[in-house]
Design a protein around this nucleic acid. Structure first.
Length: 272
DNA sequence: ACAGGATCCTGGGGGC
DNA sequence: TGCCCCCAGGATCCTG
């Protein structure tokens, strides 16, 4: 569910609520997340103070005062939110850290595709990202490298955009929206894209993500920011989830197709 | 290298 | 009201 704009919104919401706060002993649910929690992490995290929050791709990183890092991925249905400690705990809450201000940081994830992990220092965290071969941030994409990546693959553009080793943070919604913005079909082969088209696509990715961040991301079902407030970009979708509805440009029907198990939405007239 | 399918899960919506 | 099937902002693993 959460892609780059949603994760960025969570980080921005949580920053004022968490920085300066100390974490108490974590409470955990009996369910395992995608990556199992190591019991040793409980002691390592207890009483640590939060000094910063940031995003890398779709990953949330909480910086702690002993240089350790708490890393969270929201998967499809994850929520990372702060609540009054006495507020009822929602079902599917898998991690809860009491804060020293009477509140609580809670990680809730119905489908449990998300994860949370501890890293002793920045080097360990970066080693993890390196092992994942996590690609560059969309805003930092080097135009020449991006074109080489596209030109050098016979894969279709849609799966390339979803590939976190090529560019980090783009997911199903913003891939479709960026391809529409660039006038390129999801099925176009990377190797068949001109340099100008690659640049148009790169700029479309940046524009769509920037606008979505301004709107606090997209709320379709589960997603909320760190303060519990949802997003508004779903009101600006031009093709995503709009199968059969008129294309905002040519008024022809938006089409749907399945690529790599994911839904893709596009306008056959405007996207060549 | 790449495509497609299955898998991990729960919940909501549509059709009957 | 109930059931069954399909779908979902992600990622990974296996097969052909």
């Amino acid at each position: 569910m959460p892609e780059l704009p949603e994760v960025e919104t969570v980080v921005r919401d949580l920053r004022p609520l968490l920085v300066g706060r100390a974490l108490g002993a974590a409470r955990r649910s009996a369910f395992a997340l995608r990556r199992p929690w190591d019991d040793a992490w409980d002691d390592a995290l207890a009483d640590r103070r939060v000094v910063g929050l940031r995003r890398r791709g779709k990953w949330i990183v909480v910086d702690l005062d002993d240089a350790a890092r708490l890393q969270v991925h929201l998967g499809m249905t994850g929520r990372l939110t702060v609540h009054p400690a006495d507020e009822a705990v929602a079902v599917h809450t898998h991690l809860a850290f009491p804060l020293d201000d009477g509140r609580e940081l809670r990680f809730n994830d119905a489908r449990r595709f998300g994860s949370a992990a501890y890293f002793a220092d920045e080097a360990a965290l970066q080693a993890f990202f390196a092992a994942q071969k996590l690609g560059p941030e969309p805003f930092d994409l080097d135009p020449a490298a991006w074109w080489r990546d596209l030109h050098g693959t016979s894969r279709m553009l849609k799966p390339v955009l979803l590939d976190q080793t090529v560019v980090a943070g783009v997911g199903n919604i913003y891939a479709d929206e960026a391809l529409f913005e660039a006038g390129l079909r999801p099925t176009r082969r990377g190797s068949g894209v001109t340099r100008a088209q690659a640049e148009k696509l790169r700029r479309a990715i940046v524009a769509v993500l920037t606008r979505a961040i301004e709107r606090r991301g997209s709320t379709i079902r589960n997603y909320v920011g760190g303060s519990g407030l949802g997003g508004g970009y779903q009101d600006e979708f031009r093709v995503y989830g709009r199968t059969g509805e008129p294309c905002p440009a040519c008024k022809g029907p938006v089409r749907h197709l399945r690529l790599g198990g994911r839904s893709s939405h596009y306008c056959p007239h405007c996207q060549g």
